[in-house]
Design a protein around this nucleic acid. Structure first.
Lengths: 345, 345
DNA sequence: AATTAGCACTCTTATCGCGAGAGTGCTAAA
DNA sequence: TTTAGCACTCTCGCGATAAGAGTGCTAATT
């Protein structure tokens, strides 16, 4: 692929900006007068033809304006967009909201999702902060009825898992309590690997519980995290490209199939470090559900300790210039919160 | 409102059934031939006029077939629909799925939502089982960093709440442990009211924690429950009445505004006992977001102990004959599960 | 008295044709 | 290298028209 001249870059930028704004194909004449270019429409036309030739633009039909291709958007995001910070006033509004909700992890997540969805007019996704290598912290065994026991596992990152066990025979709450205490003394603070290398227990009940715990930790490790917070689903329906309900369905289905979503988050964001914002345009050939969509993703938290993922999904012509700084800023805020509250143990 | 003749009932039933199936206005001729009536279309026409007069049907425009009104659907559901049980084969399939997921409350809820959404082709809503009057069961205090403490509350119904506290000054894990133990001995099994009437504590830390616990329990009591499980959102987009994206937005927004949804679930279902299925047609004048929709709701669980709500939202012309038995059956299954696992303490 | 055949009437929906408009690509001139 | 000019193409919106579906009414029939 040949390089673009300065003028071609400028024109590509204008086409993308205008199309993001209007959702319409943009023509040569429109560019010239809307941006007061010192060029004739014929010149622009030639450049448009060249850009189309190189795959950055395309025409919906013979005699319509140009629309950016995936490649076009990608070039725009990586080379043409000036990276601006979020306006300070917006920053203050957002951080103020977080300040008011600083008790509860659940509230952070909900709030982050809500802010992202509002600011970007897209669908937001936030996963809870999650330790990369789970530390076990505490187990609680609570007898409920007969052989049923409620087990509550607390992880080092604040993750709480609950599970109902059915024992072979009824066990008293006293015995459960002492078992839990013994287990806590032995395995508190240990990672999965350390647990696996423990010697076998003499007590059958203790050994059973321990096995269940390691199984649970292993499955928790595999996932990015349990709950995924989503907001702004209805935003996607207001976008003109999703009035066709078929497109809308395909995109929304992604949020119902949580496993696909988790997979996507895991695979893309694990590559980049914390702080970097990744932009996924048009599914990148891998995700068919996202053919018409883009995602702006970032990872937050304390690397090596607890991290989570957050991002925004929107149409391919979403406002990257506004969404990217927002995602970056919210990721930063959440990182701070994680650091203050569960980061350094 | 005058009573309907047998023939009018029959015709109303046929109109509703046909319209549910085809989503089209249904005319006199169509009824006669499609259901092999021993009547002429003219006679049917007269009856249709009478039913329209009485408010059970309406015409989209002068010369189109008839469409049921909200009243029409309501009459259909309460008087005309034969209540059939779910086919045994379907029952077995469903109960088998539940059998495979009997460890985890979270999995029950997810599964129930998934089954309801699939069977009814609508949007399903399930809330976790929740004690009507919360019993406190256990508190756990875990020091994370400095003055930050993770508090985990376990309720009698298996509900788990976590919260991050910021204490006035750092406290050692040992002190936290003994405080938690003392609190557990004093207040385990007590209800909110009983907690409120406890004498003041001498230990400041203990008293603080206790205050936080009661505050938390009070706010948990107010809500129906924390998490709401939703599935099948995309189903609503396939329905012809929601191709207009404006309608779809209004309905979907309900699921983003969880508070409205909780309010709705609380208010409608609290009236009816467990086991009864409630049908809400067209928002019943109260909920504007549901003008085009119906909901089939039921309460499950052990009354007086732990109950939850579940239901399905669909277009007004949803298949009540299939949805109602499904909702009833799943509610029954969940009731059994609650009973076996957390019901009798 | 209830039912039905017959018929005029109304309203929607699909289809076609047509003209306007927008935008292009090409050629030739500046 | 840029630009003016022009023919060409394709979409979109508009109105007219025809087809079809369904009604309501009247008068005849059972």
């Amino acid at each position: 692929m040949t390089d673009l001249t300065e003028r071609q870059k400028k024109i590509l930028m204008l086409v993308v900006r205008d199309h993001i704004e209007t959702a319409q194909p943009v023509g040569s004449q429109r560019i010239v007068e809307h941006f007061h270019l010192d060029l004739s429409s014929a010149t622009v036309r030639n450049e448009l033809a060249a850009l189309t030739e190189q795959g950055f633009l395309r025409q919906p039909h013979t005699s319509a304006g140009r629309v950016p291709t995936e490649e076009g958007y990608r070039y725009f995001v990586t080379h043409l967009m000036q990276q601006v910070d979020l306006p300070e006033s917006v920053q203050r509004t957002i951080s103020h909201q977080f300040y008011q909700a600083r008790q509860d992890i659940d509230q952070w997540m909900t709030l982050a999702a809500s802010i992202l969805a509002h600011q970007s007019q897209g669908v937001s996704v936030v996963t809870a902060p999650h330790a990369e290598r789970a530390h076990f912290k505490h187990v609680e065994l609570i007898s409920t009825q007969g052989r049923q026991v409620l087990m509550v596992l607390v992880m080092g990152d604040g993750d709480v898992d609950q599970q109902i066990l059915t024992l072979a025979e009824p066990v008293s709450q006293e015995r459960l309590g002492t078992t839990a205490n013994r287990l806590n003394q032995q395995i508190s603070g240990k990672t999965l690997d350390e647990l696996a290398s423990l010697p076998m227990h003499t007590d059958a009940l203790e050994q059973d519980i321990l096995t269940i715990i390691t199984t649970d930790m292993r499955s928790t490790d595999a996932r990015v995290s349990g709950e995924i917070y989503v907001d702004g689903l209805t935003n996607v329906l207001s976008e003109p490209e999703f009035t066709d309900s078929d497109n809308a369905r395909r995109a929304l289905r992604l949020f119902e199939e949580r496993s696909t979503l988790q997979d996507l988050l895991a695979r893309t964001v694990m590559n980049s470090g914390v702080g970097g914002v990744q932009v996924l345009i048009g599914g990148e050939g891998t995700w068919d559900e996202l053919r018409q969509c883009s995602m702006v993703l970032a990872r937050y938290g304390v690397p090596g300790m607890a991290t989570g993922t957050l991002g925004v999904l929107g149409p391919m012509r979403m406002s990257y210039a506004r969404t990217i700084p927002t995602v970056r800023y919210v990721a930063g805020l959440l990182s701070d919160l994680v650091n203050e509250n569960i980061g350094g143990e």
